[in-house]
Amino acid sequence: MKQPGETRITSERPVAQAFGAMPTGRPGDVAVFPYLVYIEFLAALLFSIVLLVWSLTVDAPLLQEANPGVTENPAKAPWYFVGLQELLVYFDPWIAGVMIPTLIIVGLMAIPYLDTSTNAVGRYTIRERRLVISHFGFGFALWWILIFIGQFLRGPNWHIYWPWQDWSMVKSAEATLWDFPWWVGLPALIAYFGGPLFLAQKRWPWLLERLGMTRYVGAVTLALLFYGVPIKMLLRLLFNVKYVLVTQWFNV
């Protein structure tokens, strides 16, 4: 079967050395078959086993047949959207249900066009990219924290129930909420979105230099929009503020 010019792989000729001679391989490369393929196979096998055992032991939920007259109490979205549902407590639906998801998607897609450095690629570079990773990590963590709160701490009528509290306990009415008057809300919003643009430029002048105007404004605006979410939540939780800005057409 051996054809002329073929290299047999033996224990005396390590794979890397054999492939070093191949036009496609760089020195140090290994053959995909079998070294990668068997890892993929084993990973798939492992997950098949886990999934099968899980499915044999835990049944998927199925409640009563759908009934438009009776709302489940509490009525929860699927867990991966419970974070957004939690945001619905703090924001109007057009923000929590439409603008925030859209901005998350657009923001994620914009990441490689804002952070265009080609350093630190292809390995875990947490120490070298502290700034970028701490922002992304905070967002990723917030997503999961909101899911945790919505999934495990929200009980009937979407009240907070601690895990040791009984759901049959009726919670009393909540405090009445108030809005900022427009002459507070409007300047506050302008200062919030305008101020950091200048302050960040003063504090870290290299940022604007490295990113250029468009990227700088885009990145700072996206970051401010993102941090506005927990800030608004804190305003509600600590001071019972419902809207920062009330207008005739929409409320923020």
Binding site: N73, V89, N157, W158, A173, L177
Partner: peptide, 18 residues
């Protein structure tokens, strides 16, 4: 409201929640 905790007075006026 069981979904997001909106609350209304008996005349339907909203006073708490989203």
């Amino acid at each position: 409201c069981p979904c997001h905790g909106s609350q209304y007075h008996s005349d339907g006026k909203n006073f708490a929640g989203p």
